[in-house]
């Protein structure tokens, strides 16, 4: 199941063209300490995590500092569902690190 989530995340985040336009509307990147606090950073960190990257200190900051406010989605030319990517990535982390069980069916998570 983790693998299904991971492959969905990888597919979705691979769409990012790194244009950075999302950063214009993101409230957290403006006041955060680096680009990891912006949608482009988050999407690419999730891509990195989906390719067996490490849940580093900054990777977690990136994931959990997101407001899920969806302002970025107004600008994304690749039409990535950015807040959903973040939420699912948190869910993946919770399963592996926060003793969250895996009962929830995958289809429900990313349909």
């Amino acid at each position: 199941m983790n693998n299904n989530l991971k492959s969905w995340l990888k597919k979705e985040t691979s769409k990012c063209m790194f244009c950075g336009f999302c950063e214009a509307l993101c409230p957290t990147v403006r006041f955060g300490s680096h680009r990891g606090y912006g949608p482009r950073g988050r999407i690419n960190i999730v891509l990195y995590l989906s390719e067996e990257g490490k849940y580093t200190h900054e990777a977690l900051n990136s994931l959990y500092s997101c407001l899920l406010c969806a302002a970025c989605t107004l600008k994304c030319p690749a039409n990535i569902d950015i807040p959903e990517v973040i939420r699912v990535a948190r869910s993946l982390y919770a399963r592996n690190n926060l003793k969250e069980k895996e009962e929830v069916v995958i289809e429900k998570e990313v349909s």
């Binding site: 409230p27 403006r30 006041f31 955060g32 959990y64 500092s65 407001l67 899920l68 302002a71």
Partner: peptide
């Protein structure tokens, strides 16, 4: 409207300082 700016609230527990800055801006 759809271009509204977030109040910063959703991260107030995990990132209180950042949340506060966003709220002040708004």
């Amino acid at each position: 409207r759809k271009f509204t700016a977030c109040c910063g609230g959703p991260i107030e527990a995990l990132y209180p300082e950042l949340s506060r800055k966003i709220a002040m801006d708004r």
